[in-house]
Amino acid sequence: PDLGLTQLFADPNLIENLKKNPKTSEMMKDPQLVAKLIGYKQNPQAIGQDLFTDPRLMTIMATLMGVDL
């Protein structure tokens, strides 16, 4: 199971919303991170391994779920 990750990354406004959010806007200036996020739309399971190697993803996930870290 993808634990709902498919829906989190399926939002067509995902990148724009993250660019507008004060907690994630600075991160979204990294083209490699943006490319990763776009890739998760097609393969949400890929985030599982990346969560352990890129701490920014935890902040992004929390933001998408509405959790304040």
Rank of each mutant, 00 (worst) to 15 (best):
I47N: 07
M27D: 03
L51I: 14
D54Y: 02
T63M: 07
K36V: 09
N17A: 07
K23W: 06
M58N: 09
M58F: 09
E26N: 10
G48Y: 15
L33E: 00
D11L: 04
L14S: 04
F52K: 15
P12G: 06
V34P: 01
T59K: 09
N43Y: 09
L8Q: 05
L69C: 08
P44V: 09
F52V: 15
L8G: 03
A10V: 07
D11K: 03
Q7F: 05
D11M: 04
T53V: 10
T63N: 06
K23H: 13
V34K: 02
G66V: 07
L69T: 15
Y40I: 08
L57K: 00
D54K: 01
Y40S: 01
G39K: 13
G39C: 08
T53G: 07
S25P: 00
N13H: 12
D30S: 03
Q32L: 14
P55H: 10
Q45F: 07
N17Q: 09
R56Y: 05
L69F: 06
K20L: 12
E26F: 07
L37R: 00
A62W: 07
K23F: 07
D30H: 02
F52G: 11
L5T: 08
E26K: 05
Y40F: 11
L57M: 10
L18G: 00
N21L: 03
Q49I: 13
N13T: 10
G48R: 14
I15A: 02
D2Q: 15
D11N: 08
A46Q: 12
M28D: 00
L37D: 00
R56W: 04
P55D: 07
I60Y: 01
T24F: 07
G66M: 11
P55N: 13
F52C: 09
E26C: 05
L5P: 09
D54M: 01
M27P: 01
M61P: 00
I15F: 08
N21A: 03
D2P: 15
D54I: 01
T24R: 00
V34H: 03
L14V: 10
N43R: 06
Y40K: 00
I38R: 08
T24N: 01
M58G: 06
D30T: 01
D50S: 04
Q42S: 14
P12E: 11
L37S: 00
L18N: 00
L51S: 13
G48L: 13
M61Y: 15
Q49Y: 07
K20Q: 11
I47V: 15
N17I: 13
G39M: 14
M65Q: 07
G66F: 08
E16T: 06
K29G: 06
D68V: 02
L8D: 02
A62K: 10
A35K: 10
D11I: 04
V34D: 00
K41G: 14
A35F: 06
G48H: 15
M58D: 06
I47S: 06
T24H: 05
M65V: 07
D11P: 03
T63V: 15
I47A: 11
L37A: 00
L8P: 04
V67W: 15
T63F: 08
I15Y: 03
T6G: 14
I38A: 10
S25D: 04
F9D: 01
V67G: 07
L3I: 14
K20Y: 05
N17C: 05
K19A: 09
L14D: 01
I38P: 01
Q45C: 09
L51Q: 13
N21H: 07
P1R: 01
N13Y: 13
V34A: 04
E16A: 10
I47L: 15
G39T: 12
L57R: 00
K23P: 04
L3E: 08
Q42P: 03
M65G: 09
M28R: 00
Q32H: 09
A35L: 13
L51E: 05
M28Y: 01
V67A: 11
D11H: 07
T63S: 08
M27T: 02
D54R: 00
M28N: 00
V67H: 11
M27K: 01
I60F: 04
N21E: 05
T53Q: 12
K41M: 15
L14G: 02
I38C: 06
L33S: 01
K20D: 10
L33P: 00
K23V: 12
M27Q: 03
L64E: 02
K23A: 12
P55W: 11
M61Q: 02
D68N: 03
P44D: 04
G66R: 03
M28S: 01
P55I: 13
A62V: 10
P55T: 09
R56L: 08
D30K: 01
G48T: 15
M28G: 01
F9A: 02
N43V: 03
L14H: 02
Q42G: 12
D2R: 01
P44S: 05
L37Q: 00
D11R: 04
Q7M: 14
L51P: 05
S25E: 13
L14W: 11
D30Q: 02
E26Q: 08
P44Y: 06
A35G: 07
A10C: 06
D50T: 05
Q49A: 14
L37K: 00
P1S: 10
E26G: 08
D30I: 01
D2V: 15
M65F: 07
K29E: 14
L64Y: 05
P31A: 09
I47M: 11
L33G: 00
K29Y: 04
L57G: 01
L37I: 14
Q49E: 14
M27G: 01
Q32M: 14
L69M: 15
L57S: 01
G39Q: 12
T59S: 08
K19W: 05
L51A: 10
N17D: 11
F52D: 15
L69E: 15
N13I: 04
D11F: 02
P55C: 05
G48E: 13
M28F: 02
A62E: 14
D11Y: 03
K41T: 14
G4T: 14
R56Q: 10
G4W: 09
P55Y: 12
D68F: 02
L57E: 01
D2W: 14
L18C: 02
Q42M: 10
P22T: 04
K36A: 08
T24Y: 04
K41W: 07
K29L: 08
Q45V: 09
I60K: 00
Q49L: 11
D2Y: 05
T53I: 09
L37Y: 00
I15S: 01
P31C: 05
R56H: 09
P1I: 10
T6A: 15
I38F: 07
T59W: 04
T6E: 14
P55R: 05
K29A: 09
Y40N: 02
Q49G: 11
P22L: 06
M27H: 05
K19P: 00
F9W: 12
F9N: 02
I38Y: 10
A46E: 13
L64P: 00
P12A: 10
F9S: 01
V67D: 15
M61K: 04
N43A: 05
Q45W: 12
V67Y: 09
I15N: 01
L5V: 13
Q7K: 15
D68M: 03
F9C: 04
D2M: 15
M27V: 05
T63Y: 07
Q45L: 12
L18K: 00
L8W: 12
D68A: 04
F9T: 02
Q7D: 13
K41I: 11
P31K: 12
T59L: 13
P12Q: 06
E16M: 11
Y40L: 10
N17R: 10
G4M: 14
L3M: 14
N13P: 02
Q32E: 12
A35S: 11
I60T: 01
